[in-house]
Amino acid sequence: MTTRLCADAAEAVAGIQDGATVLVGGFGMAGMPVALIDALIRQGAEDLTIVSNNAGNGDTGLAALLAERRVRKVICSFPRQSDSYVFDALYRAGEIELEVVPQGTLAERMRAAGAGIGAFYCPTGVGTPLAEGKETRVIDGRAHVLEYPIRGDVALIGAHRADRMGNLVYRKTARNFGPVMATAATLVVAQVREVVEIGGIDPETVVTPGIYVDRVFVDQVLEDRVSQEARAC
């Protein structure tokens, strides 16, 4: 299906169902699709499973979604941060489930989902609490743990630029989980800073081909905020 250019963030997140698994890109604020998360908060879907590297910071973005009690479970590598107090309180009160996954295994499990791989053996985590209850196998003398794919109903990602075909390029370390999540969900929504005409991105530099991207939303607000922050620092 062709990529749809959305007029606003509400259109970009329309149709996300209760109980959906939502992959959320970003590493810290780099690549974080803030406008799409804010739109998801307004959209109202609940009982969500969120897959992201972290579990929210401060009071905005993912933390705000958590604070509204809309998330049943978080799958992430690093929930605990200096300002992850919203998640911390919910977790300590037993009001949110947590699955901690080593960061590389988290990425690879989504890669496997997007690549049609049924499961894979991975040496990370062998002998640790995170491998408990999982099948292990010795391959070439080294122990491995069997890991299953993580597939999303939706992926919300941040990228730098899109063309009208949905081809995406990223900027610096804001790339992080975006290209992998874009392959691993049924509905993929990209928040970008600008959309260019077809042919406006050199095909040799496309990182995420448009086949993976269903909806694109231009967030001018984010761009303004980023440049303001860059100036302020």
Partner: peptide
């Protein structure tokens, strides 16, 4: 640059010859 941080989320710089790649490639 908010788009350029290290694994501790501290803003960093790039040296000539730097390259960027996604998380699955990095791991």
């Amino acid at each position: 640059d908010p788009d350029l941080t290290n694994a501790g989320k501290v803003p960093v710089t790039e040296l000539p010859g730097a390259s960027y790649f996604h998380h699955a490639d990095s791991f």
